[in-house]
């Protein structure tokens, strides 16, 4: 039993560590949210909270139910794969109540260059222009119809079409 006496301080140290661990575990049981880990490494209840947020995007199918003309134009043009709300922004409110919420028209001077301004980081085969040289400040939609932008397509504005396809 001399060992126990002479190693007494080590047992005290071990006790201190045990107490510390217990203390942290106690705090932990208060701090960790109840639903944590229910489905994964996050708070389970967060799913319901996030789901309760009002939707901001309506999705292109919704837009197309009312704007059939635009949908047709777009489907035939080069922007067929570009979502309505990628250009018009989140419009769920407008889709719910079109008469009182007016989405307005996007400003093409900001919008089109976001995707088409020439940049070395873009894939080479993606259509790109140097907007300043290309349009000389004239709004893009003077020559390109946003929903079917290729020049010479059926719906291109008369100012740029200059002939048939």
């Amino acid at each position: 039993m001399r060992l126990f006496r002479d190693a007494g301080h080590l047992f005290r140290l071990a006790g201190l560590f045990a107490f510390g661990t217990l203390f942290i575990l106690t705090i932990r049981s208060f701090l960790v949210p109840r639903t944590f880990g229910e489905y994964g490494h996050y708070r389970g209840a967060a799913i319901a909270e996030v789901a309760a947020h009002p939707a901001r995007f309506a999705g292109h199918q919704t837009c197309e139910t009312c704007h059939t003309d635009v949908a047709q134009t777009k489907a035939a043009g080069k922007h067929a794969q570009v979502n309505c709300e990628a250009c018009h922004g989140p419009q769920a409110k407008h889709a719910d109540d079109p008469s009182s919420v007016d989405p307005g028209k996007p400003d093409t001077a900001v919008l089109c260059v976001r995707c088409h301004e020439a940049s070395a980081a873009r894939p080479k085969d993606f259509p790109q222009v140097n907007a300043g040289d290309h349009s000389g400040g004239v709004p893009c939609q003077t020559c390109h119809q946003p929903h079917s932008p290729a020049i010479g397509s059926a719906s291109a504005p008369a100012s740029a079409a200059g002939g048939t396809k």
Binding site: L3, D6, G8, H9, L10, L16
Partner: peptide
């Protein structure tokens, strides 16, 4: 800091050394 133990006997220190 001593954790209330003033045991610095030769044996205690030998144990410390080993640990």
């Amino acid at each position: 800091m001593t954790l209330g133990s003033a045991n610095v006997s030769e044996r205690a220190l030998a144990i410390d050394e080993r640990v």
